Simulated scan of single mutants.
Amino acid sequence: MKVVNSLIENCFAILELLATEAVSMRLSDIADRLQLQRSGAHRVLSTLVKLGWVEQDDATDFYRLSLKLPAIGYRFMQAASLPGVLQPVLDKIARETRELVRLAALASNNLTTIAHAQGAQGGLICRSRTFPVLPLHVSASGKVWLASLPREIALKRALDSGLGRPGKCGPQEIKTVNDFISELDRTAMRGYGVALEEAEEAIGAVAATVVSASGRAVGTLAIVAPAFRLNQNRQAELGEQVKAGAAELALLWPLRSVASLDAADDDAAA
């Protein structure tokens, strides 16, 4: 059991778990997943319920995330001008490809979905699950970002994401370290990531990294489609489109000034 974590650390760990799972959870499941004492987890959850960050079902006593945190995140996105500035680019790519387009932002070594555009119509619409935080080792976005990192760091991120613990993703999930490293090498060579039925059954994606003017990765752009529509020729075609789209987004990215400030702080600290 973890006994040295601060209350603040435990609080944010619980919020992150509830946001990632996006389902109601038992107290025992929350405590076990986070390796917390159940009495301590209960105290934190009771406080979060009182403050409105978490809701507890009266019938089952299960806990779920309230809409307070997503609402704050939405307000931040609006203040940062992300939807207004970047959405037209997503809409254009969706129209051109007639597929689902998703944008994820990079923060705290995770990729979080922040915007999308649907280009398909009628029966051609992709019924893909939305991952608030992308599983790095099985998503096209995760693989293309990890391919830009030193292999040792990329492998650690992939292992933390679930590599080597198969069973919760799609039927084509990569299961071994050697196969994953080979996939990163292929991804780096072509400049875009591909995932076919790895994150979920019957769904595929092609993705590229959005790189700021300072050379720092700030997010990823993905085109998502039913796997049967993603033969090799289509993958190559969408790969070029997603790279071009990522380059266009990099020119508009509203948070590039923040990345520049972070870099300046790093230089000053050095």
Rank of each mutant, 00 (worst) to 15 (best):
K2T: 02
K2I: 08
V3I: 10
V4K: 14
V4R: 15
S6R: 11
L7K: 15
I8F: 11
E9I: 03
E9H: 10
F12L: 12
A13M: 05
I14T: 04
E16H: 08
L17Y: 10
A22P: 14
L27H: 08
L27Y: 12
S28N: 05
I30C: 07
A31L: 06
L34H: 10
G40Y: 06
H42E: 08
G52Q: 03
G52F: 00
V54L: 00
F62N: 09
L67I: 00
L69F: 08
Q78G: 08
Q78E: 15
A79E: 12
L82G: 04
L82C: 10
P83M: 11
Q87P: 09
Q87M: 00
P88M: 03
D91V: 02
I93A: 06
A94Q: 09
E96G: 02
E96T: 01
L100A: 05
V101E: 05
A104N: 12
S108W: 10
N109Q: 11
I114E: 04
G119F: 05
Q121S: 05
Q121N: 01
G122F: 13
R127S: 14
R127T: 04
F131I: 05
F131P: 01
S148I: 13
L149M: 11
A154S: 13
L159A: 02
G162R: 06
L163E: 15
G164V: 09
R165F: 15
P166R: 04
D185Y: 07
D185N: 11
E197N: 14
E198I: 01
A205H: 05
V206L: 09
A207M: 12
T209P: 02
L221R: 07
I223D: 04
I223K: 07
V224Q: 02
A227W: 00
R229D: 10
L238K: 07
K243L: 10
A246H: 06
A247K: 15
L252A: 03
W253P: 03
P254N: 02
L255H: 12
S257Y: 14
S257T: 15
V258Q: 05
D262H: 14
D266T: 11
A269E: 04
A269W: 08
A269K: 04
A270T: 02
A270M: 15
